[in-house]
């Protein structure tokens, strides 16, 4: 466990010093929200679609965060060094998931704030509990899938365009689940809170499945080629 936190701490620290999230990813995600508003051109439609748009923007931004998370490792063969210093590759994986999740949490909170301000979304107390749970479970799922597929394309040429192609279809259940649960928290569609909680449990299953898959395959993905 200590190793996991050490890896996560290292990644977050690098991120904090470079401030890439702040100067690039967050502005990009907010820009996506603004562009959706321009493209849809209807306030009623925006409020109804808000949940889906927030998670779509979060998905795009995840790809940027994940790419960054592996680029810092592969630049100088740092990943190999890391793997020689940590006992289990799966701990490196969980450490990276934790770091990506921490960044995404900040990102999604900002995006939800953006939805309240720009899309006229309202949240009540019961909805807020559901929303917080949804955000936490969905962010873990996003980070797990992102880190796993980031490892699949790490060090390959053309990984920038491969990552979206590979990760997006896998993230479809998460996009569906998180959007529906958030809609129910917003009260912006006809989905009641109980159904919203059912979607959150799907998100939890999704997160557990891909965290386990990532832990199981991370050693294979990162081992040096024979």
């Amino acid at each position: 466990m200590r190793n996991v936190f050490a890896v996560a701490r290292k990644d977050v620290l690098i991120e904090w010093r470079a401030r890439l999230l702040l100067v690039r990813v967050l502005p990009f995600a907010l820009l996506v929200l603004v562009l959706f508003a321009v493209a849809l051109d209807s306030e009623a439609l925006l409020t109804r679609a808000a949940a889906g748009l927030v998670w779509l923007a979060a998905m795009f931004a995840t790809l940027l965060v994940v790419q960054r998370c592996f680029d810092i490792e592969t630049a100088d063969g740092a990943l190999d060094m890391l793997l020689t210093s940590v006992v289990e590759p799966s701990r490196v994986f969980f450490g990276k998931v934790l770091a990506v999740a921490a960044q995404l949490l900040v990102l999604v909170v900002v995006l939800l704030g953006g939805a309240v301000v720009l899309y006229g979304v309202r949240i009540d107390a019961a909805g807020l509990v559901l929303l917080v749970t949804t955000v936490v479970t969905a962010v873990i799922g996003l980070a797990s899938v992102g880190t796993l597929y980031g490892a699949v394309v790490a060090q390959l040429t053309g990984r920038d365009s491969l990552l979206p192609l590979l990760a997006m279809p896998v993230l479809a259940p998460l996009l569906i689940g998180a959007s529906r649960a958030t809609e129910s928290a917003f009260g912006s569609q006809t989905i009641d809170l109980a159904t919203g909680w059912a979607w959150t449990s799907l998100l939890a299953v999704f997160g557990v499945v891909f965290a386990a898959a990532g832990a199981a395959s991370f050693a294979t993905l990162t081992e040096p080629d024979a």
Binding site: P169, I176, G177, A198, W199, L202, V205
Partner: peptide, 11 residues
């Protein structure tokens, strides 16, 4: 991925 996608789309 496939069972998860299918299940979520059914829901």
């Amino acid at each position: 991925e496939i069972p998860l996608v299918h299940f979520s789309v059914v829901l």
